[in-house]
Amino acid sequence: MEGKDNHTTDVIIIGAGPVGLFAVFELGLLDLKATLVDILDKPGGQCAELYPEKPIYDIPALPTVTGQELTDRLMEQIKPFDPTFHLGQMVESLAREGDVWKLTTDEGVELRAPVIVIAAGGGSFTPKKPPIAGIEAYEGKSVFYAVRKMETFRDKHLVIAGGGDSALDWSLNLQPIVKKLTLIHRRDDWRAAPDSVRRMKELVAAGKMELVIGNITGIKGDNGQVEAITTDKGDLVCDRFLAFYGLTMKLGPVANFGLNLHENLISVDTEKFQTSEAGVFAIGDICHYPGKLKLILSGFHEGALMAQEAFRICRPNQKLRFQYTTSSSDLQKKLGVA
């Protein structure tokens, strides 16, 4: 089956954090096209998700740069190479198919390339479970930690928990289609875009949704079907519960790719940053070799060396020529500056 997003390219990069993004640049200088897959709905990885506003002080030549600024600058730097992004998708499997690798995402997208680069940092971001005893019995039935299909919530009595952008955005997006909506958060203090908070409060003032400032104490229900979320402000009757308690990182399906691992990290050589499978590379925080340092700058270096071998695999009949961006008119043309 050939879906519209299915395609074949030179290199597929798993993870669109700073190291995955810079790898696009190094591959691009060698005329290799890259496609990136990331479970987050935006590029930047940990820099964008965990600390967009925190300054980083150890990026060469940038005495101080925030996680988001670094992401934005890398996006600008790789723009000439026009990479394809598959965001909000998790890589589920990797299999050899003749001369190429076939990678399948949880949305059923099939991508093929002779080279795979795992730049997945600390692993894939997955939702944190709320600290509610017995909630596992309801997960995937009436309790969710992410919205995959909005229809799941149509005409339902929905309770949303959390005080960040996800809780606010989904309150605003789902309010028009649910029967009743209650948002519960511990304090009247929000880690979300001020405009979203303002719009939520307008809906509350207009009687279109309810806001409860309180603490969740438990869950009531039967056979996976939630009937109420219990709180110190009384029971919130509902038949769907959405909890947004932030994200944590787990190695995820990468652990099942059959690669040699070293304590949840992928073992690579330090010449090509290749894993135990030819054509599969690992760079950045997720790779391991003697002396490895989990620094963004180390990941940049690893990406540059990986790209040399990726070229040899993708273009076996062409000669690899090492050139500098300062002097090569060929590279400058690729960068759009010549």
Binding site: Q46, L50, Y51, K54, G122, G246, T248, M249
Partner: peptide, 11 residues
């Protein structure tokens, strides 16, 4: 310590 000291996880 997955966030590296940013006070934004609880690991």
């Amino acid at each position: 310590a997955e966030c590296g000291g940013c006070c934004c996880c609880a690991t």
